[in-house]
């Protein structure tokens, strides 16, 4: 079993450095929200974050050495999970609140104005609560994010060509590095990994919700967010 070349400490250091900067929504938020105005603010913020996410992914050691097809597959599978994990991290010290950005903070009740979103807010708050309970550390947060990115497509399809096989092997070695970085506390690693299935679940719910809002013309989805949403929903339908 081939061991990764980079030490866990160096790996963590590199992914910490890859962290994207804080983003602000930079909108004049007129409260109370309407369904359309809240969805518009959420999607505007998501589009900005997605651009930074691509730069972040390219800084994850080994990511750009994967095939371009794999890079695309991974990002289109996991983008909403990554956005949501970031949201949970920003909200971890703010019980009952979702800190989308420093200038865009929502209470659970504010979700009432968008049909179907409160259920998703509740799931996000519950997962955030769990991270608070576990006293999630920054090193663990960045490792989890890298894990979500690298793991997102692992079980979706089997490699067919030699290039695909090589890329998959590189991916597995990268995942070894991430796990290596966290493995010093195996029980904790277990608890943190168990949360990944909840994050995937809330991301799937969120994706369905966003597709519905787009289909009903509640919100106009454009640019990179549109590409990622279409990519994600077309591959599951």
């Amino acid at each position: 079993h081939h061991r990764s070349a980079m030490s866990p400490e160096e790996f963590i250091s590199r992914i910490m450095e890859a962290e994207p900067p804080e983003i602000y929504l930079m909108e004049d938020l007129k409260k109370p929200f309407t369904e359309a105005s809240m969805m518009m603010s959420l999607t505007n913020l998501a589009d900005k974050e997605l651009v930074l996410m691509i730069s972040w992914a390219k800084k994850i050691p080994g990511f750009v050495e994967l095939s371009l097809a794999d890079q695309i597959h991974l990002l289109k599978c996991c983008w909403l999970e990554i956005l949501m994990l970031g949201l949970m991290w920003r909200s971890v010290d703010h019980p009952g609140k979702l800190i989308f950005s420093p200038d865009f903070k929502l209470n659970r009740e504010e979700g009432q104005c968008v049909e179907g979103i409160m259920e998703i807010f509740d799931m996000l708050l519950a997962a955030t609560s769990r991270f608070r309970e576990l006293k999630l550390q920054r090193e663990e947060y960045v490792c989890l994010k890298a894990m979500i990115l690298l793991n997102s497509n692992l079980c979706s399809s089997s490699p067919q060509t030699a290039e695909e096989l090589e890329s998959r092997n590189k991916l597995l070695r990268l995942l070894d590095s991430v796990i290596d970085a966290l493995v010093w506390q195996t029980l904790r690693l277990g608890h943190l990994t168990m949360l990944l299935s909840h994050i995937r679940h809330v991301s799937n719910k969120g994706m369905d919700h966003l597709s519905t809002m787009k289909r009903k013309n509640v919100v106009l989805v454009y640019d990179l967010l549109l590409e990622m949403l279409d990519a994600s929903t077309s591959s599951t339908s």
Partner: peptide, 13 residues
């Protein structure tokens, strides 16, 4: 995936 591809293949500044 035109925008995604563009962002993935552009060299960083």
């Amino acid at each position: 995936h035109t925008k995604l591809l563009q962002l993935l293949t552009t060299k960083p500044e």
